[in-house]
Write a protein that binds this DNA or RNA. Structure first.
Lengths: 202, 202, 202, 202
DNA sequence: TCGTAATCGAGACGGTACGTCGCGTCTTAAA
DNA sequence: TTTAAGACGCGACGTACCGTCTCGATTACGA
């Protein structure tokens, strides 16, 4: 579906062009939004023939996805979440950081673009979940697992569900602008969800 | 922003055309998806001039939104959620129903279309939240308020947050296809969130 | 096949655009030649959308043909050839004029373009023969008929053939550059062909 | 301009590829016409890299010209025209054969392609006149010269002009489809032109 | 006999133009 | 005044070829 940055890519492919395309795509989506993002413009900005894009990517969304992936990969991969021993404090920290990221105007448009494109294209969604979503979710689950071992979270909790309970409310508020996306909201989510995750007293 | 179905509409406006347009829009978005939905096609299917659409709606998204609104309004507005006295059972019922609705292939594409359009267009989002999202949310809050009165939920809980904790996970799984959207998932969400909402024992 | 300049054309068609297109086409073919003449460039030069060309003409050649036709029609239609009573002198005059025209650098490229396009496209050829070639041929035949009445040309001569005998050699030399296209050549053609057309002495 | 089939060609050149290219070009031009003939398709059909074509020919027209030349050369070069002593009969025979050839569907498209390409490209035209046209014209002039010696044609006739008078009308009718290209037309041309070429009685 | 340099097939590359679709605006004629 | 119809200027689509440019893999000299 998308290019494999590691592994044996077709030897003839131009790495220069690939990078220029991903860069141009990310820039442009931030400038004009996803709806007005055109392959034509990406090619022009990247100094590349349109065919070079069509040759290697099946859709606008796939290009955008690779652009995100490149960014996530080039930046050091955060290897773990903070673990101070206090799960409530750590989660508040992470959720507040997530709020900041979603609120950052540089990422707002591109991230919306990627998410809505993923929503429409099941094939892209599979890639997205596999290559971007899951690795991050894994980090979050690790931290929760650590809290489980420390007895802060009940041992029978399904961590996949737990992670979604924590982050989905942020995602929805951001996506639909259905309410203010503030640190306070993040704190409230953490407090309530953690209360539900705690081991039963009896 | 969008047509006002009740109230003093321009007297010369053709109600027949309006209905035909909304109907055609809803049908088409289900057939070809939002990306390939064109004003041109809506007009053709509705047997209407393009200008008639441009005259009354500011965007494709607005037409789609009105189409949803018409559907939601024509169907009797559910005026209240079930209240058996058992909040857990009632919520499981409602969330399972939500899962069914999101899973229904007749609504999948149009609903995705509306949600992603809302995600991109803040003006449309305001309308959406005001006219579709809030009324439904109000019903859900009512049921939670009743549970609060019955002592099943702590009295200091912010019901807006509570509703989002319950439904956002479904929304996210559906939107990003990040996991199976099953009744079991709905039950797990209800169980955990309710545990967090319950009054503290001490 | 091509627009009908007189008669009930589709009432909605823009006459301004039509003229701009034909003008641009004629200019451009003279500047860049037929091979590098593009619909894209014609549209741009004419300040017109490409679709407006595709809507009304089936091919590049048809546009060019109409451009020629407009020129031939707008200029006063030569209604008759010179008739001094001396067929040899008159024909030499006409053939020399033809040589001049074919040699004129302003008409060389466009005329080649039209002729080669006609050579490839039978439908266009029919139009060409009917609307451009035949009227001119008719004038030439008229002059020959007059000579026939005057006894300068045998009465049993097929005038269609006669006209072709006179002009085809010029056409071929011009088309294939197979020899110098000079007044002298024109004179030689007239002399020899007329000799063949004269009434038998016996 | 074009490859020199005899003489010291670059020793490393692949004769196999050359033949495959010329063959493919001739086939394709007959199948799709000159306008849609592409180097890309010739290379593919010939099983050859595009560069191999660009290395040895300057243009599509040059390839086509060489293809014709190869055909004309491979078939034994007709070394002389029939000479029964009756110039009228012999010419009718030759012109009728020319009509047949121009009418042959296998040669129609390729020959049109070559001729129109020659019309547009002066450099190619020079080659064409030199290597294809002139040799054939020479044969025709030889036959006329023989008739001149036999007193069937006036001694002061310019044979170059005479040949063109005879063949240009066929060429024009074929090229522009301006009239039926029949044996009768050929006969009429021969009759009239010969009448003009005959020695003056007085 | 063996480099080694030219040529080969293949096909990616930056481009131009294709012919089509849909945009949002505008004009027309009917109701 | 609104409507259905649809032409208009425009911009982007996804495709076909252009002519140039690497890539190995032959291949036929000349050292």
């Amino acid at each position: 579906m998308t290019s494999t940055p590691s592994g044996p890519r077709p030897s003839r492919r131009s790495e220069t062009s690939r990078r220029a395309i991903l860069g141009a795509a990310f820039e442009l989506v931030g400038e004009v939004g996803y709806a007005k993002l055109s392959i034509e413009a990406i090619a022009a900005r990247a100094g590349v023939g349109k065919q070079t894009i069509y040759r290697w990517w099946p859709s606008k969304g796939a290009v955008l996805f690779d652009a995100f992936l490149a960014l996530a990969t080039d930046g050091q991969a955060d290897t773990t979440l903070p673990d101070t021993g206090d799960i409530a404090a750590d989660l508040k920290h992470v959720l507040r950081a997530t709020v900041d990221e979603l609120t950052d105007p540089r990422f707002d448009l591109p991230t919306r673009a990627l998410n809505t494109e993923v929503a429409h294209d099941p094939a892209l969604a599979a890639d997205y979940v596999e290559r971007l979503d899951r690795p991050i979710k894994e980090l979050k689950k690790q931290r929760l697992r650590s809290a489980q071992r420390a007895g802060e979270i009940a041992s029978d909790v399904d961590l996949d569900v737990a992670v979604e309970l924590l982050f989905a409310p942020l995602f929805q508020r951001w996506m639909l602008r259905s309410g203010p996306l503030t640190p306070e909201f993040a704190d409230a989510v953490v407090a309530t969800v953690l209360a539900g995750l705690r081991p039963r007293q009896n």
